[in-house]
Design a protein around this nucleic acid. Structure first.
Lengths: 310, 310
DNA sequence: GCGTGGTATGCGTAGATGTCATGAGCTTCG
DNA sequence: CGAAGCTCATGACATCTACGCATACCACGC
């Protein structure tokens, strides 16, 4: 029994697990039961002769051997799938880029950049997926996506500590803002004082375990009143327009506002910087990947300049 | 059902079949029955949605789709096996070259070149296999060997017509010679006249179907008398030393003669040129492969020079 | 303590993957 | 021409694998 006896399905399952971070999630994604996934991993580990995953109560982590196997599995599966496409007479995927993005980038930056890219390079096809930062990072490592737009807050640590380190590029760095209804008293000025945020009703994101609470201004010295929780930006902004509360937003969202909402910077207190990062594996990107990266960069910078001056 | 559902075993079987040229031979090599191989291929073809092999009465040929799959399968299996080695803590195979050679190169050129290479580059490991020209060509295509020493006779056609064409390099081009016992009347002169070859007793190679008869001087206008057939060079030469007959030999064998045998050129009749070719896939070779190629070239040329002048 | 995440495992079944035996097609040889 | 010898294909059967289901187990948070 050696790794050479591993099966392609096992490699597929393993890649999915590495990407999802959880046997259960991988099972759902693959349409398997959790037990099937558990067994596949067990069999792969038996073939490899080592543990590939470190089991934790909140999911799994890749051991060094697991990282090795993941790298190889990714290229193996890519080869196989490319062969399948080629045999099926489908266009090969060299002109296709897979982009992952975190929720707030989808409202503004991604569509703009795709439109721009389609104008200048119509031959490039882009597929995208939304995901959380850790999900996107895992997807990058599993080579399931080629590029990821990530949000980062101080202290700006790299999003994972595995090797090789991801290639990171800061697209823009902006201050966190607050979105308020146009009719709201806070909406009268050109900025909001941090002291005025006391006692507000907040619209937060879904509380996602380890992550810090999103949507509420950080560092408030009170227990915030969460009036609503929503994941979707459009829902959140509509709730604001309806006067149901206020929430924090990245400055980049300015261009995508529905009527009835104003976005204002906050003065006083520590500056809440947020970075928009473009991440990829450190190896040199294929040409369409580089094109998309360039388009994202261009749109981000241009929109940054416009919102500074406008 | 798509090619993505193919199994690694099927790919392994397919590679072996491509390398052997026959389901039956692949089955023997793999320790399977012929029927198992047949089923595996059938299942792979079902997954691919096309025929990968053209069935012929004397074996199989790869269809264009089959060539595509072979290329991919070779890299996939290489990846998997490399992973297996790495997990097992074995040294990786980057320093290893796999060389294939046809029988008469094994007696002289190969050992000399390996000794030379070991002296100058002790870190490079070489594994070798003997094989017929078509077997070696298939092994090159299946990426089971990195380099092949081939023999070629006029009209010097490329050894296969698949794409991409193999990269071929002529190491030496020499005339076919005849080996005779020292005590033989023909051994008295410095050369043999083609007319004197009439009525001799020949030691031939095993009659291998399509191939022309080896060991007997080509173009004799009589039915030759085959006294013995032998595959092994040492056996053949010993038979000659014992006076049992004569046979044709490539000139390069001169340096590896047992006592009691003389090798002489033949005058009269058309010149029977034989080339020693070094073949590899057209992609740029890894550094150890290039080193071995250089060593083979050097030894071949040097031995050519010595036998011309000596 | 109990509900809610996670993973592991016993059990029964369906399907994949082998072997064996046989068949069908072609070439070679007597 | 017919038998032998080679090829690949295929029906019948055994076995082993890998799945789903149900359950057990463990750690965390309320």
């Amino acid at each position: 029994m050696s790794f050479a006896d591993a099966s392609l399905t096992a490699l597929r399952v393993f890649r999915e697990v590495a990407q999802r971070g959880t046997l259960t999630a991988a099972a759902v994604a693959l349409g398997y039961t959790q037990s099937a996934v558990s067994r596949q991993i067990a069999s792969l580990e038996r073939a490899a002769g080592t543990r590939l995953l470190e089991r934790r109560h909140d999911g799994v982590l890749l051991t060094p051997a697991g990282q090795l196997v993941l790298r190889r599995a990714a290229t193996v599966l890519d080869q196989v799938d490319a062969t399948a496409r080629e045999l099926a007479g489908l266009p090969d995927e060299h002109g296709t880029v897979r982009l992952g993005w975190f929720a707030s980038a989808g409202a503004w930056l991604v569509p703009r950049a795709l439109a721009e890219l389609h104008r200048t390079h119509p031959a490039i096809t882009v597929t995208t997926r939304e995901g959380s930062t850790p999900a996107l990072v895992r997807a990058l490592r599993a080579e399931t996506i080629d590029l990821a737009l990530l949000a980062a807050a101080p202290p700006f640590r790299p999003p994972d500590s595995e090797t090789p380190a991801l290639h990171l590029q800061t697209l823009v760095e902006r201050s966190l803002c607050v979105a308020v209804p146009e009719a709201h008293p806070l909406a009268r000025g050109e900025f909001i004082d941090v002291a005025d945020l006391h006692g507000q009703r907040w619209i937060a994101g879904p509380t996602s375990g380890e992550d810090r609470l999103m949507g509420v201004w950080p560092g408030l010295d009170e227990r915030p009143e969460i009036a609503h929780t929503a994941r979707d930006w459009l829902a959140k902004l509509r709730l604001i327009a309806a006067g149901c509360g206020i929430t924090t937003v990245p400055a980049g969202l300015t261009g995508a506002l529905p009527s009835g909402v104003r976005i204002l910077p906050v003065r006083g207190g520590p500056r809440e910087q947020r970075r928009l990062l473009l991440a990829r594996l450190p190896k040199p990107p294929a040409e369409p990947v580089a094109r998309l990266a360039a388009a994202l960069r261009a749109v981000a910078i241009e929109s940054d300049r416009r919102s500074m001056t406008g």
